[in-house]
Structure formats: C-alpha cells, structure tokens
Design a protein around this nucleic acid. Structure first.
Lengths: 337, 337
DNA sequence: GATGAAAATGAAATCGATTTCATTTTATGG
DNA sequence: CCATAAAATGAAATCGATTTCATTTTCATC
C-alpha cells in the first residue's frame, strides 16, 4: 500500500503543512524538522501523488509537444530540443505523435483543455489558425514551431526559408547553372511557399529569368519528387539543376536520374532540404540544408516556460533561426557546357 | 474562466453526480437528462479537469513508454505500435525519451510511483533487474520490450534473436560461405549474446567449425563496426562474409570495405540487423533482418491494458515474435572461389 | 527577563471530479 | 389503483496534496 503525505506527517510528528513545505523546499522550515521529515519520507518510501498536486496547485509542470510524425528525423530532433530544455528547467514533456492523422492531432489539443499540460508546442500542425487563436484568446499557453501565426500571445520559432532557399539557388548559380528547376512540397504549406519565394528572390537578384515551367509539385514525398522530375524531363526544356523543397523529394529525383542514366552531378545537380541522415550515405551524397532543429525546440521551450512563470518577456515573439547550406557531391561541379 | 462540473450541473438543473454519470456514459441516466446535460456542456464549453478525475478515480488511463533514444527508428516504430494500440483502447501515451541517459531513465520511472501513468513500458532499458522486480512486487504494472526478466508479473515482448541470427548464418552458408565473421554489439547486452548464440547454433548444425578469432565487438555503432572490421582484416585470417549484430555496424563494415577496395558482395558479403531505412539506399544495398517493431509495441500494450482492466490473462507472459531475413545486394552472391 | 519582530508550525479550507448510499421517480403486474 | 421492483437522481464523503491564516516558538535587543 502506498503512503500518503499524512502518513509522513504522523511518523515525523509534524503537520501535513510542514511536510508539504519540506517537500517543496520552502525556506521556512528548521533544518532539524527537515531532517526528521526526510527520514520519514525515506522510511516510508513516500512518493507524492501527482494528481493531488496538480489538482491543488493548478499546475502540472508538464509541457506537451505535438509532432506530425515521430518517425521523421526533423521532428525527433525538435523533440530532443524541447525535452532537454524542459528537463533542465524542471518540466516534464509529453510527446504526442499525431502519426500524420489530423484527427489525433485535434484530440491531443484536448490535453490543454484538460489542464494535463501547462503549455503545448505544435510542430507543423494541420490545425487551422482559428482554432489556435481561439485557444490563445482563452489564455492557453501555446507555441508554434515552423509556422507563424498572427496573435500576440503565440510565440513562434522558425527557420528562415527564404534565406536558405536563396542560398541554395545562389550556390547553384555560382556553379554556373542557369536553368534551375524547383520541386515544391504541398503548395498550400507555408514552407513550400517561402522556399519558392527564396528561389525566385535569388534568381531575380542575379538577373536570371524566372521560368514557371521549371516549377513542379512533389508533395514532400520521395515518390512525389520522382514523378515531378519525370514530368520536368518530359517537358523537354533543358535544365541542369534541381532544387527540391526537401530531401525526400531530392531522393526521388536522384532515383529517377539513376534510372534515366543522367549522371549526378555532371549532367544534373541536386539540392534538398533537411539534412536527413540518408543524404550522407547515398551515392552520390546529397547537398542539402541543415536546419537547427534542436535549437528550434530549445528556444521555443525557454520562451514558453518563461511565460508560464510570468518572467518579463524580452526578445521577439517570432524567433527566426538561420539554416546552413551543406554542399556535398550532388552539387559539387560546374554546370555542363 | 474555466467551468467546472458543478456549473454544468447548475445550468442543467441536475446534481453533479448526474452530470458525472452522463459524462462517463453510465447506463442509468434518462435520455432526456443526458440531452439537457450535454446541452449545458456544449454551451459552457466544459472540459473535465484531468487532475481531479485522476485523483478521485485513481486511474489516469495513460501508459508511459520509456525508450532509449527516440531518434533511432527501432524505438520510434515501437512507439507507434504502443501508441496506436493504446489510442484505440482509449488510453493516452506519454513518451519518454531517455536520450541515452540512464539518469533520465531512472527519473522517468518515477512516473509510475507518482501514479502519473497506470502502466509503464520499458524499451531496452539500462535499469537493473532488481529495480524492476521491486516495482513489480509493489504491484506496479510494467512491461518490457526486447528484454526478458524472471518475474511472474512482468510481461515481456521480444524477437527471437537466436532464430533470426541462425537464419542469417544459414543464408550465408547456403551461399557457400565457410568463413563468416561476427561483429557483436555491447557484449553484456542480451541481444548481443543471443545473436552470437544463433550464429554458433547455425554453424554447429551445419558442421562448420566455430573460430573465436572471427568474433569482434563493435558496440552497436557505425564507428565500432568500422574498427572491428579493420581488426578482423589485420588478423590476416581469411573470411568472406560478415554478420553484424546491427545495421549501424554493418554500415561501418561497408564503409571500411569501400576504403579498402574490397568489393561487396563479390569479395565480402555483409548482413546487418534492424532494417534501417538507410540499408535500402546505400549502394550496394544491405541485407538485414526486419524485426516486427510495431508488433512488439502492439502486443505488449494489449497485454498491459488487459492487466489494468483485470481481464483474464490467457496467453504467455513471454511473447516472442519472429523476425524475417531481408536479402539484398550485399549478400546476394555465392562466396568467391 | 520582558518585549516585539521574525521564524516556524499547525488547523482547516480547498482544488474538481467520482462514488456510495439514500431517496425519489417510474414502470409493471395483479 | 395500489404494491413493489427497478430505474433515475441527489447528498455528501472522498481522493491527497497545497495554502491561507492563525498560532506558537525563537531570537535579538534593551
């Protein structure tokens, strides 16, 4: 049978209030009393009941993270960032794997309404802005990763899609490419849109004409990238480089090139985004963009826990971190002719 | 401001008890009352307070999973298995990433003692048997994945290391290999030991002499596999195949072969274990063993939730699932000469 | 040793649901 | 239409901690 706080109180001959104070490091307890209480705690092997604590204190010291898919390294790294930070700040983390299922995602939101968590972090959510704004208006503590929203109470942590996307294209231009195709993710996702924006920006700055027929959609999947590349080839327009909005699609392009006998990087340069582990192992290795995923989780967590503890909020609500281009074999040569 | 159950009661003109019954689908409430209550719930946008529920009912309908490292696909898949199963059975899942840190792992165990979760699943834990046995003796509900323990109250779900390991070696023997090296993981881990056992069993059954000098340790890491392979080569003993206790080490071997100019599979066959995604992408693609990770999580979860609900326990305490050999390029040829 | 402020402790209310037991209402059959 | 069983509801206790407010103890100072 489990022991309760009152058992500890009885055994050490003090009141429950004092035991509670000891356990919560209140400053106003004698050293002697503290020792007596701790001895009883030891002897009874007492563990406080979390539910009772939560109920009375109205805090759980827990934050939730909802990720789209725990299997994807991008999200796993974000989780690490959140968790390590929360851990050192004395918070627990509940990880919710939405498993690419919007319904589950909505379900998990209920954690906040239940007060199971003090704050909730959403990484790439399928939930509409309205829902989030409504929650924030109610005073719930939410934060977003990789997505921005117009609400003063929702901190957002993102990478600068436009910047790195433009870096990628500049790198290809530097290597002499003039006809660069872009394979987009889901067209209605902010990441896709902003990466396209960076692509166009770089072209414009370097005075290279933008050609819409070099843009295709690939749905962020390997299969999608594969198909998109084939569609590009079928158009018969010459191009010597492909920038894919993520590594999965870049892998698809790579596969298609292998099948079509197009040499990488001699005839076709490829750059992806995400720095998946596979990109280093595949031959030729794949150039990509490394996003500071850990840091995304870290920054947002610090911000949210600060809010929970009413710390004065310096800094910005929108936190933007820089990503870096990783050049590997797939884009290491000058463009042909 | 949040509403409480009693607010719903007042608004719908019934007692709190009745509201509680409605919310918990008790059979003994009139349809009419139910409707009135649900209407009030809607209007007030009422959400039950989880802490209060937990405190009173002494159950959280939550199970915890502690994994060694959420970044490793093996564990991520197990999580999916646990979570999908738990979800359909009406349980929530708290995922705890020990982040390869035994101290964190111990901390998370506290979840059980706190009654934050009703049951806890440990996937490849660094915790000693004694700790777990002590918990089980106290009546805590624990289950193990990929590890077995001698205690009637701890269900364990594992793959048959000996079986698949012996399958791997038989496959290599079938291809004419007679000198097969084995690169072990951490030597004191059960997985390593049992895989070695399967290796020896197959050799014995096929009357191929066991040669201890063909065994090396690689600590389950790519680097470790790489070094182990080089040590094997330096010994100067001829061998034509390597069986590595996991894919990471197999990748290391593959890398070493590339550097040393040893052709795979013509001069050296390689087989790993885990079916990492990378094994399909690398050239040559890597033969491996596919463990039913999802199923491991699934089976154990069903068992544990059954226990929580005092369902009659048929089946075995130790559940063993079969893994399957996946033959790819790296072991697709007959042995040389 | 008296005095008052500060420090330490305790009594009791409280958090928000569930659940037992008692009571009222409804339905059934003679 | 009444008796009785069954169904529906309510009152109040309860889960196990925290916290407010009151009280006691300690300690420094005169």
């Amino acid at each position: 049978m489990d022991h309760k706080l009152i058992d500890v109180a009885k055994r050490s001959g003090v009141s429950p209030a004092t035991v509670s104070r000891v356990l919560n490091n209140s400053s106003l307890v004698t050293k002697k009393t503290t020792e007596r209480v701790m001895k009883a705690v030891e002897e009874l092997n007492y563990y406080p009941n979390a539910a009772a604590k939560h109920l009375r204190s109205q805090r759980t010291r827990t934050i939730g993270v909802i990720v789209q898919d725990i299997n994807v390294a991008y999200f796993a790294e974000i989780i690490k960032g959140v968790q390590n930070t929360a851990y050192t700040l004395g918070y627990k983390v509940i990880i919710c794997d939405a498993d690419n299922n919007p319904e589950k995602e909505r379900d998990y939101l209920g954690l906040l309404m239940n007060r199971t968590v003090d704050a909730l972090i959403l990484a790439s959510s399928s939930l509409g802005d309205e829902v989030l704004i409504e929650l924030a208006d109610k005073g719930q503590c939410i934060g977003l990763i990789g997505r921005r929203i117009a609400h003063d109470n929702i901190p957002c942590c993102l990478t600068d899609n436009v910047q790195f996307s433009s870096d990628v294209v500049n790198h290809l231009l530097d290597n002499g490419h003039r006809h660069i195709a872009y394979i987009n993710g889901y067209p209605d996702v902010m990441d896709s849109y902003e990466r396209l924006e960076g692509y166009m920006k770089a072209l414009k700055e370097r005075m290279v004409p933008f050609r819409p027929e070099l843009i295709e959609n690939g749905n962020f999947s390997e299969e999608g990238g594969y198909e998109a590349f084939k569609r590009l080839i079928l158009k018969g327009i010459p191009f010597t480089a492909v920038y894919a909005a993520n590594d999965e699609m870049a892998l698809g392009v790579s596969k298609a090139c292998r099948e079509l006998g197009i040499a990488i990087p001699h005839k076709m340069a490829i750059v992806g985004v995400d720095n998946n582990r596979i990109t280093q192992y595949i031959i030729p290795s794949l150039s990509t963009v490394n996003q500071p995923k850990f840091q995304l989780g870290e920054l947002l967590t610090i911000k949210l826990i600060g809010k929970l503890n009413d710390q004065p909020d310096d800094g910005e609500r929108i936190m933007i971190v820089q990503s870096e281009l990783v050049v590997r074999e797939s884009s290491s040569r000058q463009a042909p002719d």
